[in-house]
């Protein structure tokens, strides 16, 4: 329990620290909105001209897109600082997490808050709410509970990926370019119906790397489109569990890789 309250206090302190830079905060949020807004404007223009995408209507694609944005924002709550990990390992700044009585990973993830998550969350919720009106889902308590679990599960998969890539920093002193690439892979393939990318990528993103579980499978379940999935309907309902498996594995890998940390030698 202390671990939780300590982490929370650290996170709040990080947030207060970042918010001191008001212009920064504002511009970063606008930046996040511009990034996600461009992607959505693209899909909106295409669909308003062509009607549907592999059988998905504009409302359904927007539902998936908004869901992925919300997942992305939640994943960033704790994994935003990973973009700065390589720098902290190179300069030896990471030392300080090793001498305090809390898991280094938790300390590292709570030291600073990536403000762009608020832009993503704002954009995601806006798109999701409008999409929900368009598709007119009948929300049962069960469906809502599944939504919440799916968001948590998806955020764990995306966060776990950042932890895995970030763990490379200890051995190779570099991870930032790969982190950006990893984020691009998610925003390229997770925001759209996976069926449009052809069989091989679909198979890989379902069975080799669980990108499909981030938003595509949960959205298919909620929209009643499970027939097109490559997995059994039962597995689709268990999508949130995939996140738990991935985060557990990634934390173990991170702790193992941490042993390779050599500090900066000063």
């Amino acid at each position: 329990m202390t671990r939780f309250t300590l982490s929370f206090d650290l996170w709040m302190a990080g947030l207060r620290g970042t918010l001191q830079y008001r212009t920064d905060t504002f511009i970063v949020i606008v930046m996040a909105l511009a990034f996600q807004g461009t992607g959505f404007a693209f899909i909106w223009v295409v669909l308003s001209r062509f009607g549907s995408l592999a059988g998905w209507t504009l409302g359904q694609v927007a539902f998936l897109y908004g869901l992925r944005l919300i997942v992305h924002a939640v994943a960033g709550v704790l994994t935003g600082p990973f973009f700065g990990l390589e720098q902290q390992v190179r300069t030896g700044e990471f030392d300080r997490y090793l001498v305090r009585p809390l898991s280094p990973l938790l300390q590292f993830m709570t030291q600073r808050v990536e403000i762009s998550i608020f832009g993503d969350l704002l954009g995601g919720i806006a798109i999701f709410v409008v999409a929900d009106q368009l598709v007119g889902l009948a929300w049962t308590p069960l469906a809502f509970a599944y939504l919440v679990l799916a968001i948590a599960g998806g955020a764990l998969v995306e966060g776990a990926t950042r932890i895995l890539i970030g763990a490379l920093s200890f051995r190779f002193l570099a991870s930032q370019s790969l982190l950006f690439l990893g984020d691009s892979v998610f925003s390229t393939f997770a925001n759209y119906p996976l069926t449009i990318f052809g069989g091989i990528l679909r198979f890989l993103f379902t069975f080799a790397f669980p990108l499909a579980f981030v938003a595509y499978i949960p959205a298919s379940v909620l929209l009643g489109r499970t027939a097109e999935l490559q997995v059994e309907p039962l597995l689709a309902y268990l999508a949130p569990v995939v996140g738990i498996i991935w985060i557990a594995a990634s934390v173990r890998v991170f702790d193992r890789e941490l042993r390779n940390y050599q500090s900066a030698g000063h």
Partner: peptide, 20 residues
């Protein structure tokens, strides 16, 4: 890395437009 991101975008555009 930046070029790979652009190539991914090209791949995405092809997939979306082909489906459309």
């Amino acid at each position: 890395g930046g070029l790979l991101v652009v190539l991914l975008r090209i791949l995405l555009l092809k997939a979306v437009w082909t489906a459309a």
